[in-house]
Nucleic acid binder design. Structure first.
Lengths: 319, 319
DNA sequence: CAGGAAGCTGTTAGCGCTATCAGTATCAGA
DNA sequence: TCTGATACTGATAGCGCTAACAGCTTCCTG
């Protein structure tokens, strides 16, 4: 018992005893068994984080925000990957909950019924992140992707572009957030009597090369476009490089825009218009909710909507 | 007891009982407590993976390889991040081992003494990845970064470049692998009587922008360089974009090379010379060792050296 | 000097599972 | 008929820790 107290820095132990215990632990290479500790104390210092993909570049930054805040709370993030599959997500949720974590952070507000049921039953804080267009199980931190899409469309229309095309992932059912952005985008177009002139879909991961190829294919098919709206910055950057190489007049003859506010864009020959997704802030706020550190003092059921800012860069005509 | 059997699919249970148990579990939203299960069975289906950073782009691909192999073994990867700090790494190792995982995969072969002691004591398979220039605690999978640096230098020398500079991270003590590459690189240079003409260091994360800035600063200071060796592809790509914009003759007047074989490079206007670090394969092989699925049948203490291949791209003069 | 607080150490009883073994029922084969 | 195998279910005893409390000593306060 005294050993337990020393190793957890809890309760009063005399200095001499503490020294002796630590020395013994060191010399034996003793590592306490957290499994037993967790079972006895009913406390687990882990926070599950479920994201669709590690390679997306979006999530590392969210993780950074989370780690930053959890750092001095004694909580540890544990990452699970769902590969954009609801079934896989369900399994990961089950797996994580069976370890009784102190909280769960997961991307998106769309889940299978079974997942929602498990989350609702879990009895620990649940934070759904990235997206707030929907009904969260408990808390949520994110932006409205629908609104983000609309806002971008309005900026594009205001700049005078009219023959607009969309380039994005082919699985609108899977990357729900990209789909919502597109919905908002088309909504805003139709309000001024416009529709998308063309669209180009792809499957698999996003890459510069993919962006180039899609752009080339699209412009070959429909040469008289004056704006290309990409579902993310990576393919947008590829498209931009392609346009510049072909000597197209950007943003005079043709404008471009992506989404995410990726650091990558800062190094490109010209800065792609984009919209920052507040990733760091989303990570921070979600961790605060789990750690019970919200300044508001609210516990559970909080929905925090962040406002993405439009970064017009050099690929949309200015006023 | 019968419930336990049903939920774990172990032992004989009559079909009717099984149905009843599953139905009850479903309707109660019951999620078994793995903590108790693990304590009782002394088995934990988790594999700890400790990497220096999530934003490095190198590690997501390693993770992909790991997940792929663990997929059908019932084992689950759990990610920890050390931020290139040995102290932090030590904490993460301690934390992970205290959960008694089925194995541990960690980047690099350099660790604090305390870390090495813990790993040696752990009693589970340990795989050190990425780097094999050193003495692993147990198994290791990776490439020789020293050799990789040497190989690149030889290719550069063979192409006739003589006034060579290095651009890389400022903390040679932290990113040990970059340092080893540089050591191998300089070794090969000195064998033909050359030394680095100049070098430029930076701190913080790698980005295209950083690559541009460093390249500009370096060439301003030492204009007559004919080769720039970057410690990674991201800053190399930034440098390449800068050189192309300035209208420099690449690879005629000046050559460039990076390291990693990043997908990003495929979309650039010109393809940067690089060396692929076998990341996917490293992930796969390390997971195989943990899962005990090595075709060799060897258990523990295996060192697998992979051979990185030089990809000359378009930024080294061809013979 | 009583009374109580504070400092320290130890005892006991679980936490929610699983390993192991015991027990019952059924059935084939000798 | 009995034997032994097979199918199934249940009882018991931990896994390695911590919460809660008990007990002792010391020290302070009035």
């Amino acid at each position: 018992m005294t050993v337990s107290r020393v190793l957890r820095n809890r309760g009063d132990v005399s200095e001499t005893t503490r020294e002796r215990v630590l020395e013994a632990a060191r010399s034996l290479g003793y590592v306490p068994n957290k499994i037993a500790g967790a079972l006895a104390s009913q406390r687990v210092n882990l926070v599950g984080v479920i994201i669709p993909s590690l390679s997306n570049m979006v999530f590392p930054e969210v993780m950074t925000g989370i780690s930053e805040v959890l750092e001095d709370t004694g909580l540890q993030p544990v990452v699970g990957v769902s590969n954009y599959s609801h079934d896989r997500e369900e399994q990961v949720i089950y797996e994580m909950l069976s370890w009784r974590p102190s909280g769960l952070i997961l991307a998106g507000v769309e889940h299978s019924d079974a997942s929602r049921a498990m989350l609702a039953q879990a009895g620990v804080p649940i934070v759904e992140i990235m997206d707030i267009d929907g009904t969260p199980v408990d808390s949520a931190v994110g932006i409205s992707h629908r609104r983000a899409g609309r806002q971008m469309a309005e900026a594009i229309i205001a700049a005078g572009y009219r023959r607009i095309a969309f380039l994005g992932t082919h699985m609108p059912s899977q990357d729900t957030r990209a789909r919502k952005r597109l919905e908002g985008f088309e909504e805003a177009l139709s309000q001024v009597g416009l529709t998308l002139v063309d669209r180009e879909y792809y499957t698999g991961g996003s890459s510069l090369l993919k962006g180039r190829e899609m752009t080339e294919a699209l412009l070959k098919r429909t040469p008289d476009l004056d704006f290309l709206y990409y579902s993310n910055d990576m393919i947008g950057a590829g498209g931009l490089l392609w346009c510049l190489e072909k000597g197209l007049d950007v943003p005079g003859k043709i404008g471009l825009a992506g989404f995410n506010g990726m650091e990558l864009l800062d190094g490109l020959p010209r800065k792609l218009a984009t919209m920052d997704a507040c990733r760091l802030e989303i990570g921070r706020k979600s961790a605060e909710i789990i750690a019970g550190k919200r300044p508001s003092g609210v516990i559970g059921g909080e929905v925090i909507e962040l406002q993405p800012t439009l970064q017009p860069g050099d690929t949309i005509r200015r006023g």
